[in-house]
Design a protein around this nucleic acid. Structure first.
Lengths: 284, 284
DNA sequence: GGAGATATCTGACTAAAGTCAGATATATGA
DNA sequence: TCATATATCTGACTTTAGTCAGATATCTCC
C-alpha cells in the first residue's frame, strides 16, 4: 500500500494540477469543486474537506464570492449557518475544472490498451470500495438523531420497494425499546453519510436484532457482518447470551450472512406478519 | 479514476501526515526518505523527486545537514556533483518515518478482514503497475548513451544467465548499424531508469529488430508490444516495408508476443549461432 | 589553457496554506 | 430572559513550498 502511494501520488498527483490553470489556487479550487458536488452549509463543506479551519474556509469563500462564483446566504432554518451555492459563473467554472480534469486523466491513460484501461478501472474500483469500507466508523446514536432517521428512512423505503407495502414513517424514533437502557441503535457512516444501520433491543429475556440495513451500493464489502459483530458485542454488554432476529425469505443475501455468522433457524417467535424466517445465535 | 483519486486521497492522504510528527516539514521529510531509499548525487535525488528546483533542494539539504541527518560531500568522480548520504542519526530518523508510516497503514487497514486486505493489495499492485506503465516514455537515444548502455548491460547479463554463455561487453555501443543513419536505438524509461530497450537497423535491404529487452519486473504489462509497435514505425520511417528478427526457443514469451503481433516464422536468414527462431512481418 | 557547459549553492522573493485569538450574531435550554 | 453554546467571520500571524537570478567551482572539449 505504501509503495503504491509513493508511486501513484507522484504520477497522478499531477492530475490535481489540472485544478491550476483555472486561475484559482488549489485549495480554493477544491472548495469550488466540492460545492459543485453538492451545495450546503459551510459546516458540511468543512467536514467534507476534512475539517479545515473555519477562518481559512471563510476566507476562501469570500474570494469565491468576490469572483462571482458562489453565493453565501443565511440558512432559513438556522440563522447562524450559511448556505453556499454556485452561481451561473461558478457552474461554468466547475464544468471547466471537470473537463480539464477529465482531459488530463485521458491523456494519462492514453498509452494503455483498452484492455489495460479496463483492468485499471476495475482495480481502482476495488481498491476504492475497500479503502472506503476500511474508513467506515460504527457509532451508537439515539434513534431520534438525524443520522438514524436518515438510515431508517432508507430502510423503510427499501422495504416498501421490495415488498410492495408502505410502512408509515410516523414513528421511526419513538420506539423506546431501541434506546438505552433497553436497546441501542448504531449507524455506520462514510464521510458523514449513513451507509448501514442496525439495532439491538431486549425482547422476552433475549436480545433481538432489528432494523438491519446496508446501503445497496455497499453490499458485498463485508459491512453487514462487521455491523452484526458490533451488534452482538452490544447484546453481550446488555447482559444477554442469546440473540434472535427475524427476516424475510426474499432477503437471501441477508439470510446467507446470518448463516455464515453462525445463526441457526428457529421457529417463529413473534407475530411480525412480514417475517418468514427466524434465527437465533448463542454468544460467547 | 478521478472518483478514486478524490476518495482515496482524502483518506490515505492522511498517510503522508505520518511524515509530520517527525518535526520535519513534508518536503524535507520526503527528501530524507528518498535519500534513505538509496544515497546518491543531489541530481539523482532531484530527478527522483520529480524535478524539484535545485535551489529548493539545496536549501532542504542544508536543513537536514545542520540537523545532523545527512552528510553532503563532493563526488570523487566529478567534483561538481555532491553525494548525499544518511548519518547514523539520519538512519534512525528514517526508520522512524518508516515505522510511523507502516503503523498508520496498519491502523487504516485494521477494520478489513485478511481476505479483504489481500484483495486490496492485489488491486493496488495491479493499479500501480498499470499507472506506471502508462507513464513510461519511449525515447530514441544514441547506443553510447548511459541509459542505452545500462539497458544493454541488463540485456547481455540476462542472455548470459539464461543461456549459460557470456557475451563480452567490450563493444555495446560500437555497432554503427544501431546508430543513424542505418539504425535507431530506443530506451523506455520509468522514473529515469531504463525498463525496456530495442533497436531497428538495416540488414540486407530489410529492417531488422535487435536487442529487444524488457525488465523482468515489467513483463506482462504490455510494454514489449508497445515497444515493438514503436520499432516498426521506425522501420517504416527508415523506408522499409519488411521487418525481420531472430530469437531463441527458450524465450517463449517473446515468441508468443511476436506471433500475436503478426510475425510469421521464416527460415534462418543469418548465421547467428544463438538464434533458433526467425520471424518476418510485412508492414503498412 | 581558455570557452563554454554543468552541478550546486546563495540570496531575495512570492504565493499559498494554515493557525489562533477574539468578534459577532443567532439559537437553545433552564 | 439570561447564560451558554454554536456557526461564521475578521485580523494578525507563521510556516511551507516554490521561483528566479546570479555566484561559484568544476569539468569537457577544442
Amino acid at each position: 500500500m505504501r509503495k503504491f502511494n509513493m508511486s501513484y501520488v507522484r504520477r497522478v498527483g499531477a492530475l490535481e494540477d489540472s485544478f491550476l490553470g483555472s486561475g484559482l489556487p488549489y485549495g480554493t479550487a477544491r472548495i469550488l469543486y466540492e460545492i459543485g458536488l453538492g451545495a450546503g452549509t459551510v459546516q458540511e463543506l468543512r467536514i467534507r474537506l476534512g475539517g479545515l479551519d473555519s477562518g481559512y474556509v471563510s476566507r476562501m469563500l469570500r474570494t469565491l464570492e468576490t469572483k462571482g462564483y458562489v453565493t453565501v446566504k443565511p440558512d432559513p432554518a438556522d440563522g447562524r449557518r450559511r448556505l453556499v451555492e454556485l452561481t451561473e459563473d461558478g457552474i461554468k467554472q466547475w464544468d471547466d475544472l471537470e473537463r480539464r480534469s477529465e482531459e488530463r486523466a485521458h491523456q494519462l491513460l492514453d498509452p494503455l490498451t483498452p484492455r489495460q484501461r479496463d483492468r485499471l478501472n476495475e482495480a481502482l474500483a476495488t481498491a476504492d470500495l475497500l479503502v472506503r469500507a476500511a474508513s467506515i466508523t460504527i457509532e451508537q446514536v439515539d434513534p431520534r438523531d438525524p443520522m438514524a432517521q436518515e438510515a431508517m428512512g432508507h430502510y423503510f423505503a427499501e422495504i416498501g420497494d421490495r415488498f410492495g407495502f408502505t410502512v408509515g414513517d410516523e414513528g421511526f424514533g419513538d420506539d423506546p425499546s431501541l434506546r438505552p437502557p433497553h436497546g441501542t441503535f448504531f449507524v455506520a457512516a462514510s464521510d458523514g453519510a449513513p451507509v448501514a444501520s442496525g439495532a439491538v433491543r431486549e425482547f422476552e429475556d433475549t436480545a433481538e436484532i432489528k432494523r438491519m440495513w446496508v446501503d445497496p451500493a455497499w453490499r458485498g464489502a463485508g459491512l453487514g457482518s462487521r455491523l452484526l459483530r458490533h451488534l452482538e458485542a452490544e447484546a453481550l454488554r446488555l447482559g444477554h447470551r442469546v440473540v434472535r432476529l427475524d427476516t424475510r425469505d426474499v432477503l437471501s443475501e441477508a439470510i446467507g450472512m446470518y448463516e455464515r455468522a453462525g445463526y441457526e433457524r428457529i421457529d417463529r417467535y413473534n407475530d411480525n406478519p412480514h417475517a418468514t424466517h427466524f434465527f437465533r445465535k448463542e454468544l460467547g
